[in-house]
Design a protein around this nucleic acid. Structure first.
Lengths: 113, 113
DNA sequence: CCCCTTGCTTCGATTTTCGAACCACTATGC
DNA sequence: GCATAGTGGTTCGAAAATCGAAGCAAGGGG
């Protein structure tokens, strides 16, 4: 791989924080382009590489490849016969992200006003 | 500003999705480097420009400036006499992000194993 | 054999991020 | 008045991340 910075791990120093606090590793990992989107798409349904690429319009294959490897390293997903799937840990992340979906709707309402 | 792509707005097409779904705008906005981190830091306490920069080690001033403008445009924060502060909408985002903190600790535990 | 799909990799072009230097302004001290 | 230090930023060239079209190797029909 080596197409960028190391995959953030809880306990290790990451961009913007040498403390090793888990939340900082999470914010670094999830703050990379397409990462949350990929997790979100896989929560809707497992998908293969090319289908994932289709679902996220204009995501480049090279970045998708990098992200999938990062997320696999972080144990949030795995490649199975039927495509990429979230691990139980990845599913828990989706659950943790769910309030964000609710918030975004309130944000949209507020933006209209 | 003009140091990159437009600030995502719910209802408008964003990177990776022409649909205008609020969650896609949120994922685009929050998936930019430092964005969630800035929101997170401001949830701990309001801070001025330079203090924010100190709290997020190595964040460049130019990106901080861009992000603050994006977040202000999205109505998630404002500049007051005592520094940058989250708006009520920004506070709600922090609340929505709170489960992520809990998850990150479970993630850390799983990574140890 | 040909054609289509799959999961990727390669690599040059483009965009984003970095970071040190700098500007304008407001104290505070001497 | 003059220096010093703090503030909120901007500028701009360098470095890193991302893009995206092309290509590769493997597999499955027809």
């Amino acid at each position: 791989m080596d197409t960028g910075a190391a995959t953030p791990r809880p306990g290790a120093p990451v961009r913007g924080s040498a403390s090793g606090r888990p939340i900082m590793a999470a914010l670094d990992l999830l703050g990379r382009r397409w990462t949350m989107r990929i997790v979100w798409e896989l929560s809707q349904a497992p998908a293969g590489f090319r289908e994932l690429q289709r679902r996220c319009e204009r995501m480049s294959s090279s970045v998708l490849s990098t992200r999938l490897e990062e997320l696999a390293q972080a144990r949030l997903l795995t490649l199975r016969d039927d495509g990429y799937r979230l691990t139980p840990l990845g599913q828990e992340l989706v659950d943790a992200l769910r309030p964000l979906g609710d918030w975004s709707r309130r944000w949209a309402d507020a933006a209209d006003a």
